[in-house]
Computed example of a mutant assay.
Amino acid sequence: MAYNYKEVANELRRQIQNGKYRPGELISDQNKIAEDFCTTRITVHKALQLLMIEGMIYSKRGAGTFVRKDYSIDNSINGKISPSEQLLGTTETNAGKSVTSKLLELSARIPSYEEAENLLIQPTVPVYVIRRIRYLNDKVFAYERTIMPTSITTLTEDVLKSSVYSHLKKEGFNIEGSHRIVSAKKASQTDIDTGIAEKIGEPVLVINQLSYLDDGQPFEISESRFPYQNSKLTADITL
């Protein structure tokens, strides 16, 4: 039986959580894993990408793939939601309502080391820097800052005034899921300037997100900040 990349990722995740591979330990190479699962090296590579996105493992060129030294089972319940079963953008989440955007920045630059590592791209691949204020029924809904590889798609002001996710789907991309960290922070000057808060120190809801396509390729690093007055997080948990 040949396994798909999600099944390989699930089994490797289970092995790490059960202690077969301990924090800081080198895991089997891709060829060995492919042999164990009767699958291809490409499938194994996609599976490992998912675990990298989740922050469970990391790859060191010339040395192999390791379990993160700071990984613990508790990481999976420390305010993190990963992956989402269905990833929707602001426009689709609020279907039937008026969703508009004010574009503050659309530029391109070379990624930082951390951005390149998280997006699994070469450090020479440019990334977009996108900053937008999103409005829901003409009221400030969120401030978004997004980093996206320019190699994924071509973005224009018209696209960014509408829905990036809808644009990606029209281009034939299938969005698989997201690794999210949800937290509460104190408002900064940027929050005041963008209408998210009225004063420094006011609480704001913050969602940091790394999203990926169905082939395991990350396509977006984003931070969204929401006014506390209309922020709500709903989660359905099945045991």
Rank of each mutant, 00 (worst) to 15 (best):
M56G: 04
M56F: 02
Y58T: 08
Y58V: 08
S59H: 11
S59M: 07
G62W: 09
A63S: 02
A63H: 13
A63C: 04
G64R: 02
F66G: 02
F66H: 02
V67P: 02
R68F: 07
R68H: 06
R68C: 04
K69P: 11
K69G: 05
K69D: 14
D70C: 02
D70Y: 03
D70L: 06
D70V: 02
S72L: 08
S72C: 04
D74P: 00
D74W: 07
D74T: 10
N75K: 11
S76M: 10
I77K: 13
I77E: 04
N78L: 14
I81D: 08
S82K: 05
P83M: 14
S84K: 05
S84E: 07
S84Y: 06
Q86V: 05
L87Q: 08
L87G: 07
G89E: 00
G89C: 12
T90A: 15
A95M: 12
G96C: 12
G96K: 10
G96V: 06
K97Y: 11
K97R: 15
S98L: 03
S98E: 15
V99L: 14
T100Y: 05
L104N: 11
L104Y: 09
L104H: 13
E105C: 05
L106N: 00
S107D: 10
S107Q: 04
A108Y: 04
R109S: 04
R109L: 03
P111A: 09
S112H: 12
E114H: 06
E114F: 01
E115S: 08
E115D: 13
A116S: 10
A116M: 09
L119P: 09
Q122K: 12
P123Y: 01
P123A: 01
T124H: 08
V125M: 11
V127S: 06
V127C: 09
V127D: 04
V127M: 12
V127P: 11
V129L: 15
I130P: 01
R131T: 10
I133L: 02
I133Y: 09
R134F: 05
Y135W: 01
Y135F: 15
N137V: 13
D138L: 00
K139I: 15
F141I: 05
F141W: 06
F141R: 04
A142T: 04
E144Q: 13
E144K: 09
R145D: 08
T146M: 11
I147T: 14
T150I: 15
T150R: 03
S151P: 00
S151A: 14
I152K: 00
I152L: 11
T153E: 12
T156W: 06
V159S: 01
V159Q: 10
L160G: 05
K161C: 05
S162W: 06
S162P: 01
S162K: 09
S163V: 03
S163Q: 10
V164W: 01
H167E: 15
L168T: 01
K169M: 12
K169F: 00
K170D: 14
G172T: 10
I175K: 03
I175S: 03
S178R: 09
S178Q: 11
V182T: 11
V182K: 05
S183N: 13
K185Y: 13
K185I: 13
K186Y: 01
S188T: 15
S188H: 07
Q189I: 13
T190M: 05
D191G: 00
D191S: 09
I192F: 07
D193R: 13
T194Q: 12
T194K: 06
T194R: 15
G195D: 10
I196K: 04
I196V: 15
A197V: 02
A197Y: 06
K199V: 06
K199R: 13
I200S: 13
